[in-house]
Amino acid sequence: MDSLKSEQNESMQTIFAIRHLNLYYGKKQALHDINVDLYEHCVTALIGPSGCGKSTFLRCLNRMNDLIDDCKIDGQILYHGTDVQSVNPILLRTKVGMVFQQPNPFPMSIYDNICYGPRCQGVRNRTHLNELVERSLREAALWDEVKDRLKTNGMALSGGQQQRLCIARALAMSPEVLLMDEPTSALDPISTKKIEELVMSLKERYTIIIVTHNLQQAARIADYTSFFLLGDLVETNKTETLFSRPSNEKTERYITGRFG
């Protein structure tokens, strides 16, 4: 264990450091004293039974919880050493992109979908936008399928294509981190496989934090896995370690399917 930790610290840069994070929805506490480091250029999977706070935790990282009226946070979420609560959320979200469970393209053309984020930041240059669209769609492995119909409505694509469009749309912002909340749970196995491959290819350039209910998926694609239970972060470990030799008894019971 000790050797593993030192190995992590040497080769990996911490991008998010979470310290004593408590989160309340009104009076109800949804996260209890979370402490964890998330590493750059890694895929980190968040697993755990339904309602344990995975989405809540993910939304803390780009401050989407700000939108919930009675949500209160204390503790620190350090992004490159700065507390995210002190930075402009708009700036934070351009660096920390998000992909949702339900594909949610805008009801506009594929092209405009991709350009939405950059345009909001004031990018107007046509050739620059064209390059951006092609680059993002290529990165999201969607270019070959849609390059002839960039003007068609994004809603007219299949579910799997819509989800890759949403990924491309997030990538167009050139973020450092990509948060994904069960991005494949609404998709068929083939689309799921495509997105999994995509995630693995993206980790060279981006840091990916992905919530999943599919333990095999976590085992396939994640470098690190965190197990949440009832608002507690029970265990974070290298994925092979967590699935083969979990250090916590609760983790073992969950991954062997004995509860949750």
Partner: peptide, 19 residues
């Protein structure tokens, strides 16, 4: 999820309203 998508892309609330 439409306005969430917009905000998550770094759009401001005003941009989300108008776009």
């Amino acid at each position: 999820r439409q306005s969430q998508a917009s905000l998550a892309l770094g759009a401001s609330q005003t941009q989300t309203v108008f776009k």
